[in-house]
């Protein structure tokens, strides 16, 4: 794990929070979180492959989004998410009028081999919403991952293989991410009930 193959991703997230619609007295939860993961040092994009995944957490939105912030700092999670080296917050802003939270986080990951290096750009968007069928208890997570390959025709076929590898890696890592999220949610729920975990 050398420093040279560590890459930093900029991670921007917006958290418009649950708000009350006073007209009919019912509570709504709006868009909850969007994140963009973008690799730095990339330029033009030509080939794009997109993968989307949807996952339902049987936990309330408040717990799931709390878990999403904490998942990188817990010691046990760090062991599972070993490809993540550092998570730094570069920027944070709270809109105290409408309850929107903006943060920019830089995630430094360990990228083995040619994967993610120089000619590939990855963009990831994650959004958490209260599940329409059970808004107070379930949360739906939609994740979109786009992998772009820079237009270097000589490298195109090689790039496609690399891209395939990257896609596999991403799917593996998002499964790990879900495992960590589940653990974190259970921990937070136990904590909220005052039961030691």
């Amino acid at each position: 794990m050398s420093k040279s193959n560590a890459q930093t991703i900029v991670f921007v997230s917006t958290h418009p929070v649950k708000f009350l619609d006073l007209d009919d007295g019912s509570a709504h939860q709006s868009i909850v979180s969007e994140r963009w993961l973008r690799l730095q040092s990339c330029w033009k994009i030509e080939m794009v492959k997109a993968y989307s995944q949807e996952h339902v957490y049987r936990h309330p939105w408040e717990i799931v989004t709390s878990a999403s912030w904490r998942k990188f700092s817990d010691a046990e999670n760090k062991r599972i998410l070993s490809h993540i080296l550092e998570v730094d917050t570069l920027n944070q802003k709270l809109d105290t009028k409408c309850g929107k939270l903006y943060t920019t986080r830089a995630i430094t990951i360990h990228a083995p081999g040619p994967c993610l290096q120089k000619f590939i750009e990855v963009e990831e968007k994650i959004r958490y919403d209260p599940h329409p069928d059970n808004p107070s208890e379930w949360t739906v997570c939609r994740q979109e991952t786009s992998i772009h390959i820079k237009p270097l025709s000589a490298l195109a076929s090689m790039a496609e293989k690399v891209e395939q590898k990257c896609a596999e890696k991403f799917l593996q890592n998002s499964a790990k991410g879900r495992e960590v999220m589940e653990r974190m949610c259970k921990y937070l729920e136990a904590e909220a009930r005052g039961i030691p975990f």
Partner: peptide
């Protein structure tokens, strides 16, 4: 960083998600 994250995480879970976001 960990001092900040400890504070942020506590604030997020105990206040922000409960609608107490008027104060930084």
């Amino acid at each position: 960083r960990s001092a900040y994250y400890d504070c942020f995480n506590r604030w997020y879970t105990e206040k922000f998600v409960k609608g107490q976001w008027q104060k930084e």
